[in-house]
Amino acid sequence: MEVWIGRQGERHGPYQEEQIKEWLRSGQLSREDLGWYDGLADWQPLSVLFPLEKPTPPPATESIYAPPSPPPQPVSTGLLDYAGFWQRFGAWVIDVIVLTIPSMIAMYALGGMDAYKHLLEQVQAGSDLANALRQYGEATESSQVASLVITFLYYVFFEASKFQATPGKLALRLRVTDLRGQRVSIARAAARNVVRLAGLIFGLIPIICYLAVAWTQRKQGLHDLMASTYVLNGSVREQPPQRSQPGSDHGRFDA
């Protein structure tokens, strides 16, 4: 049986049952730590899951929470399992494709296509390219603003919804959460996407928001860091029952 271990809002594992028992006996795990395995209805204290395993007094030179040798390697924090760079980039690409539809509608409605045709005519006629591009930019300002507003509302609405994800994230089984792995509020979703909106204005969305995911410890982009959010693996419906724990925002599991 494989068991997940939870302490201070973070999940690690899964570990084999015999490993868990050994760490309980050695005192490297606390009986108050939580455990969960497939089929269990809720997270339970390890003292309930393994009632016969009790720690023996450790030597005076050892801490009850000293790392085992070799230390178990957490594959997720979980209650928090962070989504990687390419997963998030793939979700972004899907969302860009989805957003193309309302953006094109706004462009048609606000004269953007006529401006584009006029630009092509000027280029074919050999007109000054810089002047033609300037005129095109002025003619499409309203449609560009509309596209920005649509994009902003799209992300805020979906990320603050009960699905906690845009269609792109849903397709790749990702969700947006706060630092406790919970659903974000509309205000937090809006704050998160202010950075995304700024990136769109300057054309830097992949750089300004996503590259930080590749090297930050918890795979957070700039917009995540600013709004104190995570993007986690697994849709809302796939998550095992979680027990909220006080002070879980920054806790670490050291066993």
Rank of each mutant, 00 (worst) to 15 (best):
A165K: 00
G126L: 10
S147V: 02
M113N: 14
A212P: 00
L204A: 10
F89H: 06
M226L: 15
T216D: 06
A109S: 06
L200K: 06
L204H: 06
L133A: 05
A109E: 08
R196C: 00
A214I: 14
I207N: 02
I101Y: 10
L148R: 08
D178M: 07
M226A: 13
R134H: 06
R192K: 13
H118C: 02
Y230R: 01
M107A: 12
N131Y: 05
Y108N: 13
F157D: 09
S147W: 04
L197K: 09
I101D: 00
Q164I: 06
T229C: 11
G126P: 00
T229E: 10
V149S: 10
I105T: 12
N193M: 10
D128L: 03
T216L: 13
G137W: 03
F163C: 01
A130H: 10
Y108V: 15
S142P: 14
S142D: 09
K169L: 09
L119A: 06
Y116E: 12
E121K: 06
G203K: 06
E141A: 07
S143K: 06
R180G: 14
G126M: 02
V149M: 11
L200P: 00
I105C: 02
S161Q: 12
Y136T: 00
L148Q: 13
V213L: 11
D224N: 12
A106D: 07
P167V: 02
V195E: 02
R173C: 11
A198P: 11
D128K: 12
L129D: 00
I101H: 05
S161T: 12
A109N: 08
L120Y: 02
I205V: 15
F89D: 05
Y210M: 15
Y210L: 14
R134G: 03
R180V: 09
G137E: 15
R180C: 08
M104N: 09
A146R: 07
A130F: 00
A109F: 07
F202M: 07
A189V: 01
Q122I: 07
F85M: 10
